[in-house]
Design a protein around this nucleic acid. Structure first.
Length: 292
DNA sequence: CACTTGACCTGTCCGC
DNA sequence: TGCGGACAGGTCAAGT
């Protein structure tokens, strides 16, 4: 479930840890999880130096000095964990990591750096992937071209947000928020949280939401995403940052995974869990009413 | 074109 | 205790 704030948290960690490191070797146990020919690996990955780490939507980009990049999607249970030469993980270790010794049984790809440090791509459910591509081709990948704007970009306006959502007038607002071609980076957690904040029922069709409400949704969405980045993201089950540590946003969440608990606005009303856009969806029945 | 559904996976939890 | 089935949710391909 890494969404924008989780991927951004990983990026911040890797951007501090990786630049300047030189890749000594790469190994993967699962062909679908690593896309890149042996030839490209030999020529453009082994011996390459990390320049910088970027993010677009929920995708990480590790730029190398060979004009190639590693593109990484964590999907639902992916982790990218850095282990320094003398780092020890697991309970009782001073770094308080959530992950144990690595590699473990969920490790799909291992990168060794020449200084003895390592980067592990773990993915319990094998939905995620790593791809080695020429840096110049990255923006031309199909899904990169289709991504909508970054919700936190300074030049992304309320008006643009409303216009893009309105292209999906017959969709439920939740489905539209989850559509990466409308806006990039929102997943189930932040869709539910921002809709609660804006007092909009997730089932409401876009065409039945006025401009004012869409403006409110935009403002609340940005606030929710920013707060989560500040808290290091949401750790429900698998998510950890580049150092193997959890994020704390879920303890600040209003509705996500809080079914049966009181709504922060209405202590007499319990959060309920319904299904919208085929996803588990959390709402306060009192402040979020459908108006279709 | 707009929108919905199935498939990809594994671990966990629930009811029998 | 074991076992089948539902569920978790990001995204693409295929279907309506």
């Amino acid at each position: 479930m890494p969404e924008l704030p989780e991927v951004e948290t990983v990026r911040l960690g890797l951007a501090r840890l990786l630049p300047g490191k030189v890749i000594a070797s790469e190994a993967h146990d699962w062909a679908k999880g690593f896309m890149g020919s042996d030839e490209d690996v030999r020529q453009f990955l082994i011996g390459a130096k990390v320049l910088m780490v970027k993010r677009r939507a929920k995708v990480l980009i590790i730029e190398l000095d060979t004009k190639y990049s590693l593109i990484i999607h964590l999907k639902m249970t992916g982790q990218l964990v850095y282990v320094g030469k003398d780092d020890r993980f697991g309970a009782g270790h001073p770094n308080d990591s959530l992950v144990g010794d690595l590699p473990d049984k969920s490790t799909r790809v291992t990168f060794q750096f020449t200084d003895g440090s390592q980067l592990f791509f773990n993915d319990q459910r094998k939905f995620g992937w790593v791809r080695l591509l020429p840096t110049a081709e990255v923006p031309n990948i199909d899904f990169f071209k289709k991504f909508g704007p970054e919700p936190l970009a300074a030049d992304f306006t309320t008006r643009q947000f409303a216009e893009r959502l309105e292209r999906r007038k017959n969709s439920t607002v939740k489905a539209a928020l989850l559509d990466q071609t409308v806006i990039a980076g929102v997943g189930n957690i932040y869709a539910d949280e921002s809709l609660w904040s804006a007092k909009i029922h997730p089932q409401t069709l876009i065409k039945n939401i006025g401009h004012r409400k869409l403006n409110t949704l935009f403002i609340e969405l940005r606030q929710v995403l920013e707060l989560s980045i500040a808290k290091g993201g949401s750790s429900d089950k698998n998510y950890v940052n580049a150092e193997g540590k959890r994020g704390s946003y879920l303890s600040f969440a209003s509705v996500f995974r809080r079914e049966g608990q009181p709504c922060p606005r209405h202590p007499d009303t319990m959060i309920s869990k319904i299904r919208v856009a085929r996803r588990g969806t959390h709402i306060c029945p009192k402040c979020q009413k459908v108006s279709n």
